[in-house]
């Protein structure tokens, strides 16, 4: 009997050791996301609290395995929104930052839609890039690539790669600077 208890204890200790020692090195979805969050200025690499939506609609809808997200805008780590039309004079780095923040908002909603575990996301199906940019704006492709690359970096090629659309719109609700719309499916 004692032998039995001892062996269980040993297994649990070993299991917890192997977990904690490989945490830093391990290439998990959570670690990859935390790295991106720290890079973008989110303290401790934690996703921000899910912001409330502005009207009579849902941030996400899940029907069976299909996940629909309301388009997500760029919310800075301090909770403020990036607003204003895109012009030819807009700083491209700042616009890329807005794109990355929109992706973070989308991932935040995906996490809730998947019941708190991003590993349950089976596939990012479609990403719609919405930019209130002037006619003949030359950088739309870069913006779409930014969000596409980021999703693949975080979710990996198999889950994160997706179909996409780039739309130049006249303007966005509440004067948002950039939005993306994501559709995904659960495992």
């Amino acid at each position: 009997m004692m032998k039995y208890i001892f062996s269980i204890l040993l297994i649990t200790i070993l299991a917890s050791c192997s977990n904690s020692s490989s945490d830093q090195a391990e290439d998990t979805l959570e670690n990859r996301l935390a790295k991106e969050l720290v890079r973008l200025g989110f303290k401790d690499g934690e996703l921000p609290p899910l912001s409330k939506v502005f009207g009579p609609y849902q941030p996400y809808v899940v029907v069976d395995k299909d996940i629909y997200l309301t388009s997500t805008a760029a919310q800075r780590p301090d909770g403020t929104w990036m607003t204003g039309l895109v012009t030819d004079e807009t700083d491209l780095d700042e616009l890329i930052y807005a794109t990355e923040l929109s992706v973070i908002s989308a991932i935040n909603r995906l996490k809730y839609a998947a019941g708190g575990d991003l590993n349950k996301i089976g596939k990012i199906i479609h990403v719609n890039t919405l930019s209130p940019s002037p006619q003949n704006y030359p950088h739309l492709e870069i913006l779409a690539d930014t969000s596409s690359d980021m999703l693949v970096r975080i979710f990996g090629e198999e889950v994160g790669s997706h179909a996409r659309t780039i739309l130049s719109v006249t303007s966005l609700p509440i004067n948002m600077h950039h939005e993306i719309e994501v559709r995904a499916v659960m495992k």
Partner: peptide
């Protein structure tokens, strides 16, 4: 939501301006 009720009628959305 008035027609279908909250459970069936509430949804995700996006709104854009067309050229």
């Amino acid at each position: 939501v008035r027609v279908f009720g909250q459970t069936v009628g509430s949804h995700t959305r996006f709104a854009i301006g067309l050229v």
